[in-house]
């Protein structure tokens, strides 16, 4: 039985206006991401991967083309449904962590659950469990600025998982982290992908991500250059790691 698509884009285009000059960033992306898949969108900076990420996550509107999340056309949703989608269906992880600075780790994780209508007690209980899951059981009452980058990203992952989303979208999740911490975060994402059956979509240029990806989508100049699946990747990983070491 073929697997169901969780995200589908058709002829996705995005053009930014720089003053009066149009700057096409995405030039027609057709992509299908399956349920439970771990997919990496790779490409150099400026290739449009963050823009693609924003479109897939319903965080920005495409200039042309369609995005379907769980077979729902995002463009057809009103503000309330869009907020609901962001709250329940998608968990976001950012390069800069984007935790709410005035809230503790625990409260940051509770926030999306409170929006989703859980009581404070339920939310707190679940947030505690999630913090244990991501390996931060002890630092629950710390504010983001009291946590290291890796710890903040763990909180962000726990927050992304708060409402049991179908998709986790991670934009350069390892971009602000050192090599070792980055590896840990990637392992954690993969673990969540396996255990919770959540689709993970990362936009990254971190080659460490190749190891855990089911498929890699290479983006260049706003177009998909090629898509490689697991079998192909295995052969190439040696090469790529060599590149990284050099």
């Amino acid at each position: 039985m073929p697997k169901e698509a969780i995200v589908r884009t058709i002829g996705l285009k995005k053009t930014y206006m720089l003053g009066k000059i149009p700057l096409p960033v995405l030039k027609g992306i057709d992509l299908e991401i399956l349920k439970g898949e771990y997919i990496s969108i790779m490409g150099p900076s400026g290739s449009g991967k963050t823009t693609l990420f924003n479109m897939i996550g319903g965080l920005d509107k495409p200039t042309e083309g369609k995005v379907y999340i769980d077979e729902v056309d995002v463009a057809q949703l009103d503000a309330y449904e869009l907020a609901w989608l962001r709250c329940r269906k998608i968990g976001y992880i950012f390069q800069t962590f984007n935790l709410i600075p005035v809230m503790t780790a625990l409260e940051n994780i509770m926030l999306p659950m409170i929006f989703a209508g859980l009581s404070t007690d339920e939310a707190m209980e679940k947030a505690r469990q999630l913090l244990v899951t991501v390996g931060l059981g002890e630092r629950i009452h710390h504010k983001p600025f009291e946590l290291s980058g890796g710890q903040q990203q763990r909180v962000a992952i726990a927050r992304a998982l708060a409402n049991d989303p179908a998709i986790i979208l991670a934009d350069e999740p390892t971009g602000n982290l050192d090599l070792r911490t980055g590896k840990e975060i990637i392992q954690l994402l993969k673990q969540m992908n396996r255990e919770k059956k959540v689709s993970v979509i990362t936009a990254t240029h971190d080659l460490k991500m190749l190891d855990v990806s089911d498929r890699v989508v290479w983006v260049r100049d706003g177009l998909i250059e090629r898509v490689e699946d697991r079998a192909n990747l295995d052969i190439k990983i040696g090469e790529v790691e060599g590149e990284e070491a050099g």
């Binding site: 329940r88 976001y92 984007n98």
Partner: peptide, 10 residues
């Protein structure tokens, strides 16, 4: 922006 990502309404 972050709050809206977490599902906050305007």
């Amino acid at each position: 922006g972050t709050m809206k990502c977490l599902g906050a309404l305007d």
